[in-house]
Simulated scan of single mutants.
Amino acid sequence: MYFLTDDLVFPPVESANVEGLLAVGGDLSPERLLLAYQNGIFPWFDNDSIILWWCPDPRMVLYPNEIKISKSMKKVIRNKQFSLTKNTCFEQILEYCSTVPREGQNGTWITDEMKIAYLKLHEKGIAKSYEVWENDNLVGGLYGIDLGHVFCGESMFSLTSNASKFAFIKLAEELGQKGYKVIDCQLHTNHLASMGAKEIPRKEFMALLK
């Protein structure tokens, strides 16, 4: 197991264990977080744990032009049920992502320490949010790290059906138009797979990052 020091350095991602755990310790400074994401590494831990850094193999990703939009979602979009804003209430999105219950998941990995770290990245224009509104009410959204050619999705939430799907679709469409290579979804979920995300070898993902 690799223990991080105060030095801004990570071990080679190939040294991660079978589960994808690469290193422990360190801090959540904006500089270390940005270095991590630029090298395919992300933090994931809970309040009772030391900071854990991951780089799993395979990696769940979505190529923006491969987004799958179901018939029901096409109808939702057509009917203009939702509207979208970007980076207008990042802190609210962060708070909802950390508190809205998810099926099969107890607690949250978005600790107070993580919130402070991502707010600092947002102030630097690196962490971004997509907000979904229905009748002037915030009902869903997502946030992630924007590397300029790869968007690292971190978390999403819905207070009403289809709101987070709407945010994810709009993200994919916009990034596709801008020529982004991929959206990093990190780990497999059936929900993401149903929207077109798929697992690729870590080596392939790292090549996209570089």
Rank of each mutant, 00 (worst) to 15 (best):
Y2E: 12
M195H: 00
H122G: 10
I41W: 03
D7S: 08
Q81L: 12
I145C: 08
N190R: 13
G104H: 04
K210G: 15
I110R: 03
H122Q: 09
N137Y: 07
G140H: 01
L147F: 11
W109K: 10
D6G: 10
P30C: 01
E123C: 13
L84Q: 06
P101Q: 10
K198A: 03
Y180I: 02
K120W: 02
I41N: 05
T99R: 01
E154R: 03
K124Y: 08
A127S: 07
G196F: 13
F90D: 03
L192D: 07
Q105Y: 12
L52T: 00
R102N: 02
R59T: 07
N135K: 14
N135M: 05
G196E: 09
G104F: 00
G196D: 07
F151I: 12
L187G: 01
I77L: 12
K198W: 01
I51Q: 08
S194V: 10
M156W: 00
I51A: 09
V139H: 00
P43F: 04
L119K: 15
S70C: 08
R202T: 14
P58D: 14
S164L: 04
K128Y: 06
W53P: 15
Y2Q: 09
F166Y: 07
L62V: 11
I183R: 02
L33M: 10
L208H: 12
K178D: 13
D146C: 13
R78E: 14
K75R: 12
N17S: 08
Y180R: 04
E131F: 03
L21G: 01
N65K: 11
L22K: 08
R32V: 14
L147G: 10
M156S: 00
A23P: 10
T85R: 15
W44G: 08
S161F: 03
I183H: 01
S194C: 01
E91T: 14
I93R: 05
M60T: 05
G148E: 07
G176P: 00
L52I: 00
I183K: 00
C185A: 02
F168H: 05
Y37G: 11
V76G: 10
F90S: 03
T108F: 10
N135S: 09
L84P: 01
K203D: 13
L192W: 07
L94G: 13
N190V: 09
V13Q: 04
N190W: 13
I41K: 04
N65R: 11
F45H: 11
K170T: 12
L62E: 05
G20Q: 10
F3A: 13
F3G: 10
S129I: 09
I93A: 14
Q92L: 09
G153W: 01
M1N: 05
V139N: 00
N65L: 12
L22D: 03
G104V: 02
H149V: 11
L94P: 09
K80A: 15
P101I: 09
E66R: 14
L209C: 04
L175C: 03
C152G: 11
K165A: 02
K120S: 04
Q105I: 11
G26R: 13
P43H: 08
W53D: 08
T88M: 14
D7P: 06
F166W: 01
V24E: 15
D27M: 06
E14V: 15
A172C: 02
R59M: 07
L33D: 05
S72E: 11
Q92G: 06
D57L: 15
M156F: 00
L84G: 02
